[in-house]
Computed example of a mutant assay.
Amino acid sequence: MTRLRVRLFLAAGAAEIRLRNRLPRFLDAITPHRHRPDGLVAELDCVASDPETRALFRAELDRAIAEYLADAADLTAFMEAAAAAIKAVIEPRAGQRAT
C-alpha cells in the first residue's frame, strides 16, 4: 500500500508540473490569492484613517508646496532678468544704428 501512495503522490506532482507549464494562466486563475494592497495604497489608507498621520502629511505637503512656489518665484525673477539683459544687448540704444 505504501508504494501505491508514493506512486500516486509522484504522479500528482508530475501532473501539476505539466499543468503549470502548459496552462499557467488557468492555474493562476483557480489558485486562491490573498489581496495585498500596494505599499502606496496602504500608506494612503494610513493617512486617511489616522488623524496624527494625516496632520503630519498635510504639514509636509504644505511645506513642499511652499518650497516649490518659492523656487518658481526665484526662477521667474531670474528669467525676467536674463530676458532684460538679452533685450539690452539686442536692441540698439538711442542714437545708434543696428549693424
Rank of each mutant, 00 (worst) to 15 (best):
M1N: 12
M1R: 13
T2Y: 08
T2P: 09
T2H: 10
L4C: 02
L4F: 01
L4Y: 05
L4S: 03
R5G: 09
V6F: 04
V6G: 02
R7T: 07
L8Y: 06
L8Q: 08
L8S: 04
A11M: 04
A11L: 08
A12I: 07
A14K: 03
A14F: 09
A15W: 02
A15R: 06
I17T: 02
R18T: 08
R20V: 05
R22W: 06
R22I: 08
P24L: 07
P24M: 10
P24C: 15
R25E: 09
R25M: 09
F26M: 12
L27F: 15
D28F: 15
A29V: 05
T31F: 10
H33I: 01
H33W: 06
R34W: 01
R34S: 01
H35E: 14
R36Y: 07
R36M: 08
R36D: 04
P37R: 08
G39A: 15
G39H: 06
G39P: 11
E43Y: 11
D45N: 15
D45A: 13
C46A: 14
V47Q: 01
A48Y: 10
S49L: 00
S49N: 04
D50N: 05
P51A: 03
E52Q: 05
T53C: 03
T53F: 01
R54K: 06
R54H: 02
R54T: 03
A59Y: 05
E60F: 08
L61Q: 02
L61N: 06
D62I: 12
A64W: 11
I65Y: 13
I65S: 04
A66D: 09
E67S: 07
E67D: 12
E67R: 08
Y68K: 12
Y68R: 15
L69V: 08
D71Y: 13
D71P: 09
D71C: 13
A72H: 14
A72D: 15
A73Y: 05
D74C: 14
L75G: 01
T76E: 03
T76P: 00
A77G: 10
F78A: 11
F78P: 02
M79N: 14
E80K: 00
E80D: 03
E80Y: 02
E80R: 03
A81M: 07
A81Q: 10
A83F: 12
A83P: 06
A83E: 13
A83N: 12
A84W: 02
A84Y: 02
A85Q: 08
A85V: 06
I86M: 00
I86Q: 00
K87V: 09
V89A: 11
V89E: 09
V89M: 07
E91Q: 10
E91V: 11
P92T: 14
A94S: 08
A94V: 07
G95N: 11
G95I: 10
G95F: 06
G95Q: 10
Q96Y: 14
Q96S: 14
R97K: 15
R97P: 12
R97D: 15
A98S: 15
A98V: 15
T99A: 11
T99R: 12
